[in-house]
Design a protein around this nucleic acid. Sequence first.
DNA 1: ACCGGTAAAGTGGTATGACCAATTTTAAGG
DNA 2: CCTTAAAATTGGTCATACCACTTTACCGGT
Lengths: 237, 237
Amino acid sequence: MFELVTPITLGDRVLSQFVELINNGTFKLGEKLPGERDLYAQLGVSRPVLREVLSALRYMGYIESVQGDGTYICKRPLGPAMTQLSLQAMIEETQLFEIWEIRYLIEPEVVGLAAQRATDEDISLIREKFHLFEKNVQENIDHQAIIESTKAFHNAVAMAAHNEALAFLLESITNMMPETRERTIQVQGSSERAVAYHRSIMEEIAARNPEAAKKNMQKHLVDVKSDLEAYMASKKR
Amino acid sequence: MFELVTPITLGDRVLSQFVELINNGTFKLGEKLPGERDLYAQLGVSRPVLREVLSALRYMGYIESVQGDGTYICKRPLGPAMTQLSLQAMIEETQLFEIWEIRYLIEPEVVGLAAQRATDEDISLIREKFHLFEKNVQENIDHQAIIESTKAFHNAVAMAAHNEALAFLLESITNMMPETRERTIQVQGSSERAVAYHRSIMEEIAARNPEAAKKNMQKHLVDVKSDLEAYMASKKR
DNA sequence: ACCGGTAAAGTGGTATGACCAATTTTAAGG
DNA sequence: CCTTAAAATTGGTCATACCACTTTACCGGT
């Protein structure tokens, strides 16, 4: 007869109370929380329930706990709010392309911002990461190292845009296709092309040329997409 | 002497194992998990630890539990992976502008896609949401209704872009500035201007004119930004 | 009075066992 | 065979105890 909305659990209630306590300023950022024993008494639940809630908040990155010390409220929870463990297996094929498209929308804009806002330090960091990447590709080290260095490069670029939330977001998104990255890297010549594009992007950021940088990032991502398609096709077999 | 990297907790280990079990296909999407009693034995931990991990996964939206029935793995965990409870109080002023900038990067692109991909159904839905919004503003109903209807409009547009992940992402982002929305809506004339922009955007999507739609969305967001600034200034006092 | 080391107190982490509430399954009864 | 009620199963909650680590505070030596 009645619609089953959502069986509200005790933890849900506690979670709400907790959010409220933070939003109304009872608990301030960076502050230490009361001990679990005080807290669960204060909230009127048992310790396990409290801990389940805290556990969730912890894995989401809102709080941090130190054994023997206490639990602290994180100051910059932005990343956690967007990212989180990406269970790659949970991402289906269509979603992979959707995620690619999001990259295609965002990353060019990011390099555009980077080209406008990068400081000299930013640029030298980008240079450094690029040369590391180039070196790894040339020497054909293990794939993991190459992946790490390309991520480092993209990350350095994102930092140069001077929008921390954006950098977080981008990292989360790219992390959603990790397996993919490992496979597409094996496609013939893909890494070499990537090096070329990275170089162009780097140089155009250094030259403060947003539009050109954006264009090259777009081309690079189109490349990534075709690698992705090749990978998907091979997976079908 | 030694650097404290991260005190790995039992739950962390279980979480990893769990992720691995999903990624290697032992647990498939939509499937029912073993009972907690089996599971915690199988993973070699106690029930509280297991439950803390499951709790986190649950609040992140990866799994769902039904008392008396079992725990299921969600099929489309994309939203949860990005969004989650946004503790508005945890977002600082600078971050608000960073988030605005993200909107400024993404939303115009989204309406651009929408103008290319919208079906007739999409367009009529957008029209519907727009008229609701317009009506709410004219009749000056309670603010909550206005906020809801503008969100509904933006959401309808996002759906028209036919990229579910993107729609999720955008919703998460806009949800990060909820309080803001409630305040800026009180700024004189802001709602009326918003109606005008929404109308233009709607019409240009219907006319399949991506560039014009993008331009208007950008203007609208610039408007939102100045409201934001006004809000922040008033908050300072 | 100062310093250093050690014990105590406090904190988060883990484990056990029990019971409650909802659902599903099973089996008994019509 | 269908209905129905009991039993088994499952997630939800609680109490308690103990472990590991940190911080604090006390106390003795200098």
